[in-house]
């Protein structure tokens, strides 16, 4: 589903954020991307959604060779990749409902009832049903992150990417958020979650891809000890 072949990423200014990185995620897999701050986790996720182009190597996502994907097709790739950010990236002048409905509208869904039904279903999954009319600032950090997750899954994308989704949350809330991802993964969504919280990630027992200074440092299968 996601395949990196000798991928390198050099930022303008010459910094090598990723070097000769190869790995693969099969369909329906859940993996954590671990490593200290600055290891290149965010860069890797951004390459998958084509927020950046690799400097070297090839990336395939859902059988698409990203190096061959033309600019005008990028939006259609991003619709298949639900993205979740540490800072939520919600629209603060829109209600929870409008935030979660945005991907549906972008996807060209016009039927009001269908939009309403799917937004409610997504909010229900993240435990926020009844908060449709709230504005994001009136919600707690954990709740805002749930809205971000609802927005990412409302179009039922086959791939979910999360960049430090629990970075600002306390351990209990972090665990709950991770459980949400595990549930989505259970229904077949290929999921890749970047986190530097080794302790939390280790406890969950999934595959862990470890980065260090832009290189693959370890790749531990589910259940394998560090």
């Amino acid at each position: 589903m996601i395949r990196f072949e000798h991928v390198g990423k050099r930022y303008d200014g010459g910094y090598e954020a990723l070097q000769d990185l190869s790995f693969q995620l099969v369909q329906g897999e859940l993996a954590f991307l671990t490593g200290p701050s600055g290891a290149g986790k965010s860069t890797l996720l951004r390459l998958i959604a084509l927020l950046e182009r690799p400097s070297r190597g090839h990336i395939r996502v859902a059988d698409i060779d990203l190096s061959r994907l033309r600019r005008r097709h990028i939006p259609y790739l991003r619709r298949r990749v639900g993205m979740i950010f540490q800072d939520h990236r919600l629209l603060h002048d829109r209600t929870v409902f409008d935030n979660v409905a945005l991907p549906l509208i972008i996807n060209g869904i016009a039927d009001h009832r269908e939009i309403s039904r799917r937004v409610r279903a997504a909010l229900d999954k993240v435990g926020l049903l009844g908060r449709e009319k709230y504005y994001p600032v009136t919600l707690s950090g954990g709740e805002q992150q749930r809205v971000g997750i609802a927005r990412a899954v409302v179009t039922r994308p086959p791939i979910l990417l999360a960049d430090e989704p629990t970075g600002n949350l306390d351990p209990a809330l972090s665990g709950e958020i991770m459980q949400l991802f595990i549930e989505f993964n259970r229904v077949g969504v290929t999921t890749l979650i970047a986190s530097h919280d080794m302790e939390l990630v280790g406890r969950l027992g999934f595959r862990r891809i470890g980065l260090l200074d832009g290189r693959l440092a370890s790749d531990l299968a589910a259940g394998e000890a560090a």
């Binding site: 939006p75 619709r79 993205m83 629209l91 991907p103």
Partner: peptide, 13 residues
């Protein structure tokens, strides 16, 4: 900000 977010979730030009 809104434009950036819309592009992130697959809005066309």
């Amino acid at each position: 900000e809104e434009i950036v977010i819309a592009k992130l979730i697959g809005a066309t030009d």
